[in-house]
Amino acid sequence: MPEGHSVHRIALQFRRNFVGKRVAVTSPQGRFAADAALIDGRTMVDARAIGKQLFLEFDNALWLRVHLGLYGAWDFAGEITADDTIASAGGRMGQTNQHGTVLDSRGEDSIASMGAPRRTRLRMSESEKEDDSAFVFPPDPIGAVRARLLTDTAVADLRGPTACAVIDERTVAKVVAGLGPDPLVDDGPEAEDRVVRTITSKQTPIGLLLMDQSVISGIGNVYRAELLFRARLDPHTPGKKVPTETAAALWRDWAHLLDIGVRTGQMMTMDDLSPEDWVRAMASREDRHWVYKREGLPCRVCGTNIAMELMGARKLYWCPKSQV
């Protein structure tokens, strides 16, 4: 499932290539046809992400809300401003500056590696893959395309989302109110205080709380495992028993890792790597994480075999010795 950094990067693509332009909206699959008609021919005026939720605003006060879920993806094509961190092979990401500018939720800054628009195709989901082979614009919809957004120069096809609906501002506010803070949207002390209060008031294990989007927005299975290891925190610890300073550190570390994810397109969770190790980690998940998908392998810190179990119907990876 795409985690928070991926959705922020998708919002960036819409801000770069669709915001300010009139958009033809259709549903080649047919399931979204009635909603598509509500925004067809309108101008997109904003694109923003909150956690795993994407909100595209149009000039008639209606919004397209999308949650990709486990299987959703956006396919962009046309004159696309592609991020140079995207490599052309295998959906892997290229090297990028570890200390570059970070986009905020409204796109006030820009990624240094952004280039001029070029004719290309780009798939964005949990990973990203660019295809520079020749094609006729706009390409024909392929497969079950739930929604197609088309301008004079770019097209975005949505496949397999968990949620895809046109909603009004009141409904947007209701959805957002049910979400926990997102560091790229809520970066003040109030957000940290809210997260700390919520975590430390609950009996629920911290391994479940971090996946609860009403507690913190954007964290999925990879970031859950890595954040808990980086905090050396047992996933089974009840929220009430998590020290206040540890809960606050989890929030700040999530902000740090989300920052890296938006800049690089990868869930890089290991710090202080040499330039050579950074390049290797960007190319291979095996060199990018502390515990995720490393069950049975020795812990990088203590040598104990990494454990795997189901928690909240998702695979949890952790070190029984380092995380106590």
Rank of each mutant, 00 (worst) to 15 (best):
A37W: 01
S274C: 00
V45N: 03
M270P: 03
S214Y: 02
R121I: 02
L297V: 14
D187A: 08
P117T: 04
P141C: 11
I306T: 13
R65E: 08
M267A: 14
A61M: 05
M270T: 09
P298A: 03
R294V: 12
E286H: 06
A225T: 09
D75T: 08
N305H: 15
R15L: 01
S214H: 05
C164D: 09
Y71A: 14
H236S: 12
I199Q: 06
A281R: 03
H99C: 14
E169D: 04
A89R: 08
A77L: 01
A77M: 07
V7M: 12
A77G: 15
I142V: 14
D287N: 06
T85G: 00
D157R: 05
A134H: 06
P161G: 03
L12D: 09
G4T: 08
T162F: 12
A247R: 07
S113F: 01
R121V: 02
L257E: 09
Y317E: 11
L208V: 05
L228C: 07
A34E: 15
H8I: 10
M114A: 10
V19N: 00
R194Q: 15
E79I: 00
T171G: 00
D152K: 04
A281Q: 08
W63L: 06
T171F: 00
L38W: 01
T96H: 14
